[in-house]
């Protein structure tokens, strides 16, 4: 097993002194896709916000390639290579698609690199190339999600944190989004993925964790998940 790129060690965090995460540990190995599933309001988004520095920890630690990153400023964590693709409507609404992508490359200084990155993103997400001049708020839900992913890819980075990419999308669009994520995995990207349902776990994840009320209640291989009917019943809504 490869050395872990991202390590979460027993983290406790929350808002207004009320812990949402009550001691969560997690490893993400280089080049792997790790999925955290769990019901809404049980800390999945908070988990990602802790890693990217938007929420500070009350205890525990987060390491990227062996170096502590908790307590750092969010923009510094980004420049360390942690790219957080947030939920739903977070593209910059009043900016064009291309300006959104340029924002993704904020930390990239060389124009040639930016241009090459944009070409790569347009190859992966041709829909964005068609819409390049359009204002983000006029995009459809699926296109916005693609824009958010594209914007995240612009930054390069070492690990992608993806927050509920299927939230609120039609099944056919979810299919497309997961196609993209699978491509990314094939390219060797490291991804920490958060979802409400376990439906997609087997096709993409190397490892699955169940987060319930701020604690990890089960961890293992996606295949093992299928052998646990009681978990499937709870989290697949079966």
């Amino acid at each position: 097993m490869a050395e872990a790129l991202l390590e979460l060690e027993n983290i406790v965090a929350g808002y207004h002194n009320q812990p949402v995460l009550k001691g969560v540990s997690l490893d993400v190995a280089e080049g792997s896709v790790v999925m955290v599933i769990g019901p809404n309001g049980h800390g999945k988004t908070t988990l990602l916000r802790c890693v990217s520095g938007l929420v500070s920890l009350s205890s525990g630690g987060i390491r990227l390639a062996g170096t502590r990153i908790d307590g750092k400023r969010a923009d510094r964590i980004v420049s360390d290579g942690v790219i957080h693709i947030p939920q739903s409507d977070l593209p910059f609404q009043d900016m064009s698609v291309i300006d959104n992508l340029m924002m993704g490359a904020y930390l990239t200084r060389a124009r040639a690199d930016i241009r090459r990155n944009i070409e790569e993103v347009f190859d992966l997400l041709p829909r964005l190339a068609e819409r390049r001049g359009q204002t983000a708020s006029t995009l459809s839900g699926g296109e916005r999600r693609m824009l958010a992913i594209g914007r995240g890819l612009m930054a390069g980075g070492r690990i992608l944190l993806v927050d509920e990419p299927s939230l609120g999308l039609a099944p056919i669009v979810i299919e497309q989004i997961y196609g993209i994520l699978t491509d990314l995995k094939a390219n060797g990207r490291t991804i920490l993925l958060v979802e409400e349902s376990a439906a997609r776990a087997t096709e993409i994840a190397d490892r699955v964790h169940l987060l319930d009320d701020g604690r990890m209640i089960w961890s293992g291989m996606p295949a093992d998940l299928l052998k646990r009917p009681e978990i499937l019943e709870t989290y697949l809504g079966g």
Binding site: S52, L54, R73, D75, H84, Q93, M103, Y106
Partner: peptide, 13 residues
């Protein structure tokens, strides 16, 4: 437009 999202792009706000 979005302070958090800008932070996540690495913008030192």
């Amino acid at each position: 437009q979005n302070r958090d999202a800008a932070l996540l792009m690495g913008v030192p706000i």
